[in-house]
Amino acid sequence: MTPIWTPPRTWATGELVTAALLNAHLRDNLEFLKTPPTDAYTLNETADYTTTSTAFVDVDAARLALTLITAGGDVLIGFTGTFGRSGVTMVIYLDVEVDGARLAGDDGLLFEQFGTGGANDKVLHFVALRRGLPAGSHTFKLQWRVNTGLATLYAGAGTLNKDVHPQFWAREVS
């Protein structure tokens, strides 16, 4: 059963403490704190992801779309993955779409630049806080774009020596 958060009760002097109150305010709230709303996806796919999009788009609108039913408050979102380029000088940008609106906006949460003569593969990762989400269901989608060229996100698809498994996760933290 999904733990339920109940705003902690302010106890009154002489109040009769019932089993129902203890269960709601101690047991259930502690269970909620022990196992807060969390969703995560670790890629282990049949093909890597690629894009040439110069506008932010979903990396995978099905797999990398997390859903949390929150009690209301802040949500921590994280991602780690390894990206490759198509042999040109280019920039890869990452952002997260929360309920249809990008978390950072503009050029996203972060970018990584691939320069002439530099590495062809780089690790990109972030931990970001989305503050003040109301209670209810929320969706988090990983998004990316490039300025030019073609980017690859290695997705555990068996690519030789690049069979790595990126992870995208979200957890309510308050």
């Binding site: 796919e45 690629t50 040439t52 999009s53 997705a155 698809a157």
Partner: peptide, 9 residues
């Protein structure tokens, strides 16, 4: 055209 993306299938 803003770009193209590909994933599994």
């Amino acid at each position: 055209v803003l770009g193209v993306s590909a994933g599994p299938g």
